[in-house]
């Protein structure tokens, strides 16, 4: 589904990704962990198509298409979804109106008819349950005045509405208390259907107790330096990143 080869990317002339290789197959859940500044969020931003990030080398293929050549909206229409680390507040645009526009743009790109208000409302009501959203939240402006937990729930709600084939969760768990984390994780798990893939970027092993990954990767200095199963996450939780840093730095200096 997603193949990343030798990806190098920089922001403001500073190289962050240094030849990243990575593959995601349909239905897989990959967790990406790593110390601060290792390039986790850069990876998410590059995949979503943020213009400030410059890809200098490498390729990203998504279902046989060159993802890097696509605009952010075309990536979304093709089935890539980024749950933002910092969801943006958009005063004056209601959540429902925003989502209806988005859902219908995605449908249009697939040659499907636009949903009318009634159809849309019905689907919205179903999906709201997944993340325990109340109706008032859909009437409010996008993320405006939302708590941290509400913003992240709103991200997962949007994901449920847009039904992407690849979802990238960028530190969706950061700043959440355990109740909010559980709600978000339940939402994500409900959307695991054996076909949809996830890249779960996180700073904390705790999330992976709730969203159990198939693979765990450690990102350091812009490369994946270690991969394993969920046990690797437990090991990182216990021992921190220093042992991996030492291993990598020793190899680099050798």
């Amino acid at each position: 589904m997603l193949t990343i080869k030798d990806l190098k990317a920089s922001v403001e002339e500073k190289q962050i990704l240094n030849g990243l290789n990575f593959e995601v197959k349909p239905g897989e859940v990959h967790a990406i962990m790593g110390p601060n500044g290792s390039g986790k969020s850069t990876l998410a931003s590059v995949l979503a198509g943020r213009e400030e990030y410059e890809v200098t080398e490498g390729e990203v293929m998504f279902n046989g298409e060159d993802l890097l050549e696509m605009s952010p909206e075309d990536r979304a229409r093709a089935g890539v979804f980024l749950a933002f680390q910092y969801p943006v507040e958009i005063p004056g645009v209601s959540n429902a109106n925003f989502l209806k526009t988005a859902v219908n743009e995605v449908r249009k790109s697939k040659g499907l008819e636009a949903l009318d208000s009634k159809q849309f409302l019905k689907i919205m009501q179903e999906k709201m349950k997944l993340v325990e959203m109340d109706k008032a939240m859909t009437q409010r402006s996008v993320n405006e005045g939302f708590s941290g937990g509400e913003k992240k729930r709103n991200e997962i709600f949007q994901m449920a509405m847009l039904e992407p084939s690849l979802a990238i969760l960028d530190e969706t768990d950061s700043g959440l208390d355990i109740d909010a984390l559980r709600i978000v994780a339940n939402g994500v798990n409900a959307l695991r259907d054996g076909q949809r893939s996830f890249i779960v970027i996180t700073h904390y092993q705790r999330l992976l107790d709730y969203i159990v990954p198939d693979f765990v990767h450690v990102l350091y200095k812009g490369r994946i330096v270690k991969s394993g199963t969920k046990d690797l996450a437990l090991e990182l939780e216990e021992k921190g990143y220093d042992w991996i840093k030492e291993e990598v730095d020793a190899t680099l200096n050798a």
Binding site: A48, G49, R50, E51, S71, P72, E73, R75, A76, R77, L82, F84, P87, V88, I90, P91, G92, V93, F98, L99, T101, A102, E105, V106, S109, S141, V142, Q158, L162
Partner: peptide, 20 residues
């Protein structure tokens, strides 16, 4: 960018923000 990342084209996204 947020609107575009949800599949809304750039022009439509600008119009939505201007309208808001």
């Amino acid at each position: 960018f947020y609107l575009r990342a949800r599949g809304i084209g750039e022009e439509a996204a600008r119009a939505l923000l201007n309208h808001a």
